[in-house]
Design a binder for these strands. Structure first.
Length: 116
DNA sequence: CTGATGACGTGTG
DNA sequence: ACACACGCCATCA
């Protein structure tokens, strides 16, 4: 990335979130809570969602949903259907704003990245 | 510093 | 299964 504007005071936490989100394999999803736990702020999944508020390009925020597999953040995308469309494009199935087989496609950073 | 806010999570009825 | 309340903690006015 050429000119990344550093926001001082913040970014650190946000940066970590973005990194993890970018690492989510295609066709997989994770939850805010899982990321929060991975970053250490396990009790504050809200911070993760907040971080996504400024999600720069390149961050597949659509792969991040709440613990129920619900597309809670779809309203923050260009259009309400963007998130679901993107997910379906990656091979996931979404019904009523909820990911089907969520357990099968769930990608846990604390397990996939940290292990051992 | 204080209070409000937020793309969440968990417990309880 | 659904609805509601409380907790959590970083960021902003």
């Amino acid at each position: 990335m050429p000119h990344i504007k550093k926001k001082l005071t913040s970014s650190n936490f946000f940066s970590d979130v973005y990194e993890v989100v970018k690492l989510i394999p295609k066709g997989r999803v994770t939850s805010y809570g899982a990321i929060a736990h991975f970053l250490g702020t396990k009790s504050s999944a809200r911070m993760v969602g907040w971080a996504m508020n400024g999600c720069p390009k390149g961050v597949p925020a659509h792969r991040v949903v709440n613990s129920s597999g619900l597309l809670t953040g779809k309203h923050h995308f260009k259009t309400s259907k963007t998130m679901q469309t993107l997910l379906e494009k990656e091979g996931l199935k979404v019904s009523k704003d909820k990911i089907i087989h969520f357990d099968d496609v769930f990608w846990d950073p604390t397990r996939e990245l940290s292990i051992k």
